[in-house]
Structure formats: structure tokens, C-alpha cells
Amino acid sequence: MKKHSSFGEFVPRDLNVHPATYTPKYRFSELRSPRRSLIPLASTLSEITGPTFDQVTFERADNDLILNGAHDGLPLGERIVIHGYVLDQWGRAVPDALVEIWQANASGRYRHKKDQYLAPLDPNFGGSGRTLTDAEGHYRFRTIRPGAYPVGLDWRPAHIHFSISGSGWAQRLITQMYFEGDPLIRSCPIVGTIPTSAQIDRLIAVQDEAQFVTMDSRAYRFDIVLRGRRATWFENTQGDDT
């Protein structure tokens, strides 16, 4: 296991930069949102620690969604690279973070039994990928640009779901990444749960021409910020060995 010098407690979370639990325009939140206030919990070992992924076996195509669901050909759609950095609130890299993504295919259909949209499945596309960030906090996926799809009378903009497990339990985050220039972003009820336009903008990947792969793929850049740790941990829980 890697040695780290400091695993301090986390900077308190600013809940005002996240969606509220109950957001009436996203109606599925109505019955699934706690109505009482969250109880503040001062960090203990349970919150500053968290799962590590050094024993996970990664396959070569785990972060390549163009290949990892292919059977007798390649998936249909626009080939793209999604890459970026996982940083903490101090701007420092978060290495060895587990980044997991899932998405619809180019037609806007998920490989999931609950998805009844009439657009077809692609026999060569699964829609899930995973990777660990490197020492600089960088991650990279290759995939197909997902399609938009309807939910009731609304449309979801093209998006990719991101799950990030950083170095501590209290950093755990799930979010969604959108694509620069998509006019569906501004009318989406789920995007609309986010309280400020600046926070919405941070979920929109921008085209990154410097990373285009010649005769192969366009590229998008999406950076993620996790909660930062304070520099020092408090005395008494250093444990018996200090």
C-alpha cells in the first residue's frame, strides 16, 4: 500500500453548490428526498479513510468503451475521447481515484432491462467503463458519443454518468457530464436541480482539439473537483503508534 504523509479531515462540504434533496421539477425526488436536516458529523477515522483499489485487476479495455462491448464489429456512432483531471479543492491531483462511467449508446438507449425507449440497442456496445487516475490525477476514456433520449415529455441531453471514489469515504461523488453546445442542457429537469449556472458549466465538457486523434476521434475535457483535506489531523486519533 502506498505511504501518504497526511490524511487530514475534509473541509466542510458546501451544500449550496449541490442540488437540494427535494427538487420539485425533478419529480422522482419527491418521495425519495429526506425532509429533515442532515446531522453534521465531525470527521472520524470512518470518514477520512475509504476503500483503496490497489488490488483491483484492470483489463486493457476497461477504459475503452469502443472495444469492451464489441463482439463482431465496432459500435455505431461518433468516436470520442473523454479525459481530464481529478483534483481536490486545493487544486492538487487525486491519484488512484476510481473513475467509473456509464452511458447510453449513440441512439440514446441503455443496455438495461428497465430502458424501454424504442431506439435500438447496439450489439457492439455495452456502455460501462472504469479506470484509475494516474499520479497526476489524470483519467482517460475512449467511447461513443451518447445520444439524447426522452423521459416522459422531457429530453435528457447527451450525458455520461461519472462515479468517483477518491482517497476518503467523505469524498464519494456521483455526477453527470454534458457536452458543450447541447441546447437540451438548459431545459433538462435534472440539470435544473443544480443551484447555480456556474456549477452547471463545470459539468459541461469542452471540446479539446489538442487531444483529437487523427483520422480517429474527437476529444473532450472534463475535470472533476473532490473535497479537499485539511493539512493536519487532530492529535488523539493518530492512534497508539505515534
Binding site: W90, H112, S163, L203
Partner: peptide, 26 residues
Amino acid sequence: LTETASQTAGPYLHIGLAPQYAGITT
């Protein structure tokens, strides 16, 4: 820096987080 905003995991979270429940064997 401001923490990235959370979004719901949605109804198809199994695909990415528990693919065994979605029949995905990647």
C-alpha cells in the same frame, strides 16, 4: 476550488457500478 456538483445516479446505475445486475460482463 468548488466541489463538482452531485447529480442523481439515475435508474441505470447498475450498468456502471454493478454490471453483474445488468448482464454486462466487461
